[in-house]
Design a protein around this nucleic acid. Sequence first.
DNA 1: ACGCTTATTTGCAAGCCTTGCAGGTTAGCA
DNA 2: TGCTAACCTGCAAGGCTTGCAAATAAGCGT
Lengths: 135, 135
Amino acid sequence: MRSPAELSQAFRQSGLKVTPQRQLLFRLLHGNTSHPSADVLFALASQAMPGISLRTVYQTLNDLALMGELQSIDFGTGSARFDPNVTEHQHAMCNECGAVHDVFVADEPKMLGLDGFDVHAAQIVYHGVCAGCAS
Amino acid sequence: MRSPAELSQAFRQSGLKVTPQRQLLFRLLHGNTSHPSADVLFALASQAMPGISLRTVYQTLNDLALMGELQSIDFGTGSARFDPNVTEHQHAMCNECGAVHDVFVADEPKMLGLDGFDVHAAQIVYHGVCAGCAS
DNA sequence: ACGCTTATTTGCAAGCCTTGCAGGTTAGCA
DNA sequence: TGCTAACCTGCAAGGCTTGCAAATAAGCGT
Ligand SMILES: [Mn+2]
Ligand SMILES: [Mn+2]
Ligand SMILES: [Zn+2]
Ligand SMILES: [Zn+2]
């Protein structure tokens, strides 16, 4: 995801307006590696801007995802997680605390046993226990 | 997942009853490689047994999953998919038709960039276009 | 600075999938 | 055949996300 300043420019160029709510979310997301849910972002945003609505959080997240600035990831935990890192990488989720960490794989695993399937992307999710929860 | 006959025995031994509804689901699931959702199973079950309730389908699916006879997989498509194949394998989902196919990988991809994470399982989902939809 | 137009924000209702609950029903066993 | 615990069904409700409409405000031209 680009910087708040660059995003503001991009939004205006797309005919979208740059509101205080959106700017706040730009800041909360930029460089954020915690893979927060909409709910968590709403809580954070509410601290800085009491009264902001959950609906607006979802709206802005969807706008950013549509622009390719953000990816929405479903780990099957009930709510979607959002990731401003849209470069190719994979994830590891802790079974204990639910934290999601970025990981990289040496090379994409080779798929066997299925002919004629045109692979566009391979999503890998490691499940286990993170360093913090192990101690 | 074991055969309907074996499952019936296992259910009784666990103090669970073997009802016509459960037997029907045993049959619908045994050897099923289509990764159906509860909804799809409910539709199939309703054909053979009009009046069966969606609640009962969910109940039986949960029972089987709890017994380790079935796995529930969330591909982020809204509803869970159920798989009577509980041996280690991976999946490929078609972006066009939503079909899920079983695949195998040569060897588990090596995780980089995260120290101290104890990996219990690695889930891989290939996204792309299946042979049928390509033509 | 001012007013206009159009996008945005909000609050609430509703949609989708799944589970909780309660009352009538039935499997399993003596 | 009868008892009792487990089950089935229908419906309500819970969690996450989106649709909708009225009030609000950003961006732009003057
Ligand atoms: Mn990430
Ligand atoms: Mn499978
Ligand atoms: Zn942890
Ligand atoms: Zn297909």
